[in-house]
Design a protein around this nucleic acid. Sequence first.
DNA 1: ACAATAGTGTCTGTGAGACAGTATCGA
DNA 2: TCGATACTGTCTCACAGACACTATTGT
Lengths: 219, 219
Amino acid sequence: MEQYDASKYEKPSVAVDLLVFTIEDRRLKLLMIEREEEPFCGMPALPGVFVRMDETLDETAERGIAEETGLSGIYFEQLYTFGDIHRDPRMRIISVAYMALVPVEKLAYKAGERVRTAYLEDVEDLLAGDKEIAFDHRKIIEYARWRLANKVEYTDIAFHLVGKLFTLPELQIVYEVLLGKELYKANFRKKMADLIEETEYMTSGEAHRPSRLYRRKES
Amino acid sequence: MEQYDASKYEKPSVAVDLLVFTIEDRRLKLLMIEREEEPFCGMPALPGVFVRMDETLDETAERGIAEETGLSGIYFEQLYTFGDIHRDPRMRIISVAYMALVPVEKLAYKAGERVRTAYLEDVEDLLAGDKEIAFDHRKIIEYARWRLANKVEYTDIAFHLVGKLFTLPELQIVYEVLLGKELYKANFRKKMADLIEETEYMTSGEAHRPSRLYRRKES
DNA sequence: ACAATAGTGTCTGTGAGACAGTATCGA
DNA sequence: TCGATACTGTCTCACAGACACTATTGT
C-alpha cells in the first residue's frame, strides 16, 4: 500500500445493497423495490444506499434498513462484496451486500409508514424462470438464499425470523422454509430442546389444540 | 440509489488486504510484511493493494497474491469487508479482505523471487499477548483464524493446504492445526475415506514405515 | 532388536431419522 | 363426536469418539 497516493487516482463508489428477508405464509420473502429510472427501469431490484464518508459499513446498512422499513435494531449481517467492473453500467460501484432477517409481524407493523415503495416478493418465484432482475442482483439474491440455507444448519439464525415468543410449530416452519424440506416434529423438538425455554403462555382461539409459547434460551 | 449522483461526493478508497495462510512445522503461518513507513512504521501488517478501476475484486486479490508470492492459480476466497471510518488514520479506506491457502512447498519454491519483503509468521504467536499489529489487522486476522477453524469442519478447505499428492498423516496435521486439537487417526481415516483416492505411490527414505500417497477424489 | 510412525478392528454412546401413538382445542 | 393441530415414546441405524492392536521402514 506504500508508494501509492490513493487520492491521485479515480475511485470506485461504494454502496450497500440490502436483502431484508422474512417468512410469510410458509414462504421466504424478500423486500424489493421497483426501479423507476434507467437503467433497468421497471425491473425489480434490491434496495441500496451509498456509503457516506462519516459512517461505517454497518451504519450504512442500519440506515438503509431504517429508510426502507422504518425499523431499527433488527438482526443483520454482512453477506459478501460484489465488485464486478460493469455491474452498474453507469459507473464503477462496489456493493457490500447485507442480509437482514425480520419476523413478519414487525415488518407488517411498519408497512404503512414506509418511505419508499418497497414490497415483499416470494424468493422462490423471483428466482424461478428467467425473470429479469436489475444489475447483478439475481446473483446476489441467489448467494444470499444459499447462505441462508447453509447457516440455518449450523447457527441459530432462524430465531431472528420469529418474534420473542414463538411456538415450536412456528419455528419449525422457519427451518422447513429455509431448508426447503419437511422435518419430523418429534425430532425437531428434540433438537431445539437445548436452545429454548418454556414460558407459561399458550396460543388460543384456534380450532385445535393450543400450542405452548417458548423463548430463546439466553445461555 | 436513485436521486444521488455519486460522482459529486467524496469517495472512499477501496483496497484488498491479503491473508496468505500456510502450514509449516505443524503450525499455522501467515504471510506478513513489516511496515517501513508511518503510520505503524516497523509493525507487522497484512500485505494489501488498492483496487484499480479496470479490475474486479477477485482480480485485485489475484494480482496482490502474485505480487507477494509470485504464485498464481492458488486457492483464495473473499473473507469480509472492513469499513470502519478511521481504520487507516490517513484517509478513509474500505478494505476487502481475501484469504488464500497455499501448501508450504509452493511458497518455499517461490520464496527467492519475492518482490517485497514478506515473511511467514506463526499465527498463534502473532495473536497471543498484546503484540501490536498495524491498522485493524489484528481484528482481520482473528476473524480469518476463526473462519478457518469453522470452515474446516464443514467444507473441504483443508485440501488446499496440502499438495496434489499427500499422505493421510499429513492431511491430519492440517486438520489438527486448524481445529486446534488432536484427532484419532483411525476415525480421521474413516471420515476422509469418501473424499480421497489411493495412488500407487508411497513415501520413502524415512526411518519408519512408509506412508501411502493419496489424491483428492474429484467426484 | 528397537524406535518411530503407518495403518486396522472393534466397542460404545449419541443423535438423526422414521413412525406410531396420545392430547386438547373449537365447531 | 369430529377435524385439526399439538405433542410424546420408542425403535433403528449411521457415525463420531475412544482405544488397543498389528505392520513396515531405517538404524
